[in-house]
Design a protein around this nucleic acid. Structure first.
Lengths: 196, 196
DNA sequence: TCTATTGTCTAGCGATGCTAGGGTCGAGTC
DNA sequence: GACTCGACCCTAGCATCGCTAGACAATAGA
């Protein structure tokens, strides 16, 4: 009857449950903030007890890391879409990417926090950096590298521009910068980085 | 005998102990990171029991906030010193301020975290913002405002430049950016913001 | 000297992340 | 079809966290 071996069925069920855990963590973080994401609540949401979580992840950090990887993939998509949809010269392109980045940070704070504010135990800027993280930076590089201008180092340019975006996103959301001038700040940044 | 009224002596002793708490929190955070700063350890360091802490502060958040205010004052001093000691035109001045800012963030991570990464319950960019915070931003504004160039809004310029510095400091220290290029990134940023 | 206030500590509450140990259920074997 | 064994999962608990209630001691004023 069963064309699927028992072992294979188990494996799939396990993988599905793992996705369920990550999805539950993400949704809980999006709705009530990361401080509401506890192992007990998470276990309750997925209909299992706490120890089950540790059969999939080494601990809460790794769960955050898994959500962060989802965030990286989505961020890469958002950036590529913005770059592809931008009309005009490099300035418009950079501006579109900047707005997309800041829009992602403001619109998906849980994902952004998992990526950049919380400790997900992920390696950055190294050889063993997970693929989605590399790809997100690659997306930034694609979208911005061409606008580096005279500088011979698009990677360096991208890093600095990215840092500026990250600073704007972080400080704005933490209430360190008045939100009403967000648009003007973005324009000033883009202007400075695309001059000449 | 006692020229000092009893009440006054008590008041001073209390104030001194409050400073002791903040100093203990800061030192503990600097030596072992903020995750090691617990109310129990703090109480042990100052030679009192936990509830004493709550006679001075509403909770751990307020203690972090007190350390953050110290950090803001020191940051303001560092920035002003850098601006005052910089020789040459606006570009050198801005460069010196940028290096000073990043040096502070890298050299006093506990203070920087208390200011910008942890929740110290402080109000930013508002009417009731504590003095030291306003002053730190004022120091940035003094040092950078003149370099805003043609833009008629030095405050906006300062905000964006500050955000870029914050992004560089945060991403570098979190391992998101390779540390060896820190100097080149700083130069690129200064160059972009002082062009023309 | 007695009283009342002020100050401090012990003990404990509800949570957190994480884990040890036992029990149940099902797959594979005679 | 009964049995064994291993994978799976849950109950219960540990250490630690921020914070607080209530008892106790020290001290200032009458």
């Amino acid at each position: 009857m069963s064309v699927m071996p028992v072992q294979e069925r188990k494996r799939r069920k396990r993988a599905q449950r793992e996705r369920l855990i990550v999805a539950a963590a993400r949704e809980l973080a999006e709705r009530q903030g990361w401080e509401a994401v506890t192992t007990r609540r998470l276990a309750e949401r997925i209909g299992y007890s706490q120890p089950v979580l540790y059969g999939h992840f080494r601990g809460k950090r790794e769960i955050i890391g898994a959500v962060a990887l989802e965030g990286a993939a989505e961020l890469a998509g958002v950036l590529r879409a913005a770059a592809a949809g931008a009309a005009g010269g490099p300035r418009e392109r950079v501006g579109a990417v900047a707005r997309a980045y800041l829009g992602f940070a403001a619109g998906s704070p849980a994902l952004y926090d998992a990526l950049f504010h919380l400790d997900g135990g992920l390696a950055f800027a190294r050889e063993d950096t997970p693929g989605p993280l590399k790809d997100a930076f690659a997306a930034l590089l694609e979208s911005l590298g061409a606008a580096a201008g005279d500088g011979p180092h698009p990677a360096l340019f991208t890093e600095v521009f990215w840092a500026a975006l990250h600073g704007l996103a972080t400080l704005t959301r933490a209430g360190r910068l008045p939100p009403e001038d967000a648009g003007r700040r973005t324009r000033l940044l883009v202007e400075r980085f695309t001059a000449l």
